[in-house]
Design a protein around this nucleic acid. Structure first.
Lengths: 217, 217
DNA sequence: GCGCAGATTTCTGTATACAAGGCAAGGCAA
DNA sequence: TTGCCTTGCCTTGTATACAGAAATCTGCGC
C-alpha cells in the first residue's frame, strides 16, 4: 500500500517519503492504532508502506526527537509509554510555555491581528456548543495558530509542537467531554489578549492546560 | 582519521558511531571551527571521519533536531545561522524555562540535596575569581546539573538541553569577560533555592539568562 | 521437571550502489 | 555582448546487502 499522497507541506522539512511516513506514523500513534509500548520493527513497517528501511528509519528517528517514540540502542523503536510522572512533567512545561505564548501575544498587541482574533472569537462562541468534534478540532487549531502567530516567537512554536503532540495523546480521553469548557477557556484567553492584559492571558493559559490535563498546579 | 573513542555515554541514545559523530560535530560547531552557514556535505564528512554516509546522515538529522544545523530539502545540511531575532526568541524561551527549573528546585526543597547545593556553593565562591576558564566551565556544568536534578522534571531538562546548546554558542564571546558576575548570579540563585524561595529563585534565573545574553527583558 | 548452554533467528547498525533533482557552466542565438 | 537553453556534475534520496548484537528457542544434564 503506497502512502496516500495527501497534502505535501512544501514547508521546512526534507524528503517527501520520510516526511509522509512521519505523518502517517504520527497519525497512527495519536489515534491509538499503534498501542503505547508497541514495538516498531523497521522491516515490518518498510513492507507495510512499500518503501525501504531507510526512510522508515529516518521517520522513526524524527518521531523519537519529538518524543512520540523511544529508541533504545540495539533494540529499536517502540511507541512511547506515558506514566503518571511524565504527564505532570509535560504539563508543567507546557503550561509554562503556553503562558509565555499568551503573554507575548497580549504584549505585542498588533491591532490588525486583533481584528483576526475578534473574528475567531465570534466564530468560536457561535460554534462552541455545536458538539461537532471536527468543528471543535478546527477551532482549536485556529486558536493555537492565531495565538502563536501573534506571539511571533518561532523557537517557542517549535518547542510547543512537540509538547502538544505528547500531551494531546494523553488528553484525548477527557477532551471529548470537556470540549465546551475548553472553548470557554480559549475565549477567555483571547479576550485577555485582545484587551492587552499579558498577566491575565498568561495565567488563564497556564490554568487552561492544567484543567485540560485534569491535574492540580 | 577514525574518531577518538573518548567518553561513551551509556546514557539514553543509540548507536556508537552516530553518537560519536554527533558529539564531534557538535564540538566543532560550538567551538566555531565550523563556521555559521557552512555547508555540511555528507560525503565529505563521511571520508573525513572514515565512516559511511549513513551515520553522518543520521548525526546531521539529530543535530538538526536540536537546532544546531538546518536541513533544506534536496540541499542538505549547513550550520545554523543565528540572527538577532532568533537570539531574542531563544532567550525569551530559555529564560522562562530556567525560571521554571529554579522555581521547581526551590519548591521541592529536598534537605539531602540541599546539602549538595551548599557544598557546591562553597566550592563556587572559592573558585569564582580563579579566572581559569576550565574550572569555571566545570562549575557552570555542576550548577546546571544540580539544579536540574533537584527540579526533577525530565521533560524540562530535555528541552533545555537544545536551548542551552543554541544559546551557548551565541553567548560564547561575552562569556569570558562575564565569568565572575556569572557565578555571582549562580550563587544567588542557589541561595534562593536553599532558602526555599521559589519566586525569588525563578526571578533571578530568568534575569540571569537575559544578563548573559546582554539584552533587555 | 527445571535450569543452563549452545545454536538459531531476528533485528539493528553500517556499508555500498543506484537513481533523480538542482545548480552552474558553457554554448547558441538574438 | 547578453540572455536563454542545454548539458553535465554534484549532492541528496532511496534501495539493497552484509555483519554483528540481542533475544529466543532447543536440547542436554541434573
Amino acid at each position: 500500500m503506497p502512502i496516500a499522497n495527501g497534502d505535501k507541506k512544501p514547508g521546512l522539512n526534507h524528503s517527501p517519503l520520510t516526511q509522509q511516513l512521519v505523518e502517517a506514523l504520527r497519525e497512527k500513534i495519536m489515534s491509538g492504532e499503534l498501542a503505547s509500548g508497541e514495538r516498531l520493527v523497521e522491516e515490518r513497517l518498510s513492507e507495510e508502506f512499500s518503501v525501504s528501511r531507510m526512510p522508515v528509519r529516518e521517520a522513526l528517528r524524527q518521531l523519537a526527537a519529538s518524543g512520540l517514540v523511544i529508541i533504545e540502542p540495539r533494540r529499536g523503536a517502540s511507541v512511547a509509554k506515558f506514566h503518571g510522572d511524565l504527564l505532570r512533567e509535560l504539563v508543567e512545561v507546557r503550561a509554562t510555555l503556553e503562558a509565555l505564548n499568551a503573554r507575548l501575544a497580549a504584549k505585542r498587541h498588533d491591532p490588525e491581528q486583533i481584528a483576526a482574533l475578534e473574528a475567531l472569537l465570534a466564530e468560536g462562541t457561535k460554534n462552541a456548543h455545536s458538539g461537532d468534534g471536527d468543528v471543535l478540532a478546527v477551532l482549536n487549531q485556529k486558536f493555537h495558530l492565531a495565538l502563536g502567530k501573534i506571539a511571533a516567537n518561532s523557537v517557542l512554536q517549535e518547542v510547543m509542537l512537540s509538547l502538544r503532540d505528547r500531551t494531546e495523546v494523553l488528553f484525548a480521553p477527557r477532551s471529548q467531554a470537556r470540549a465546551p469548557q475548553n472553548w470557554e477557556e480559549h475565549a477567555a484567553i483571547l479576550r485577555a489578549v485582545i484587551k492587552g492584559d499579558p498577566e491575565l492571558a498568561g495565567l488563564l493559559a497556564a490554568r487552561h492546560i492544567y484543567n485540560a490535563a485534569g491535574i492540580e498546579p
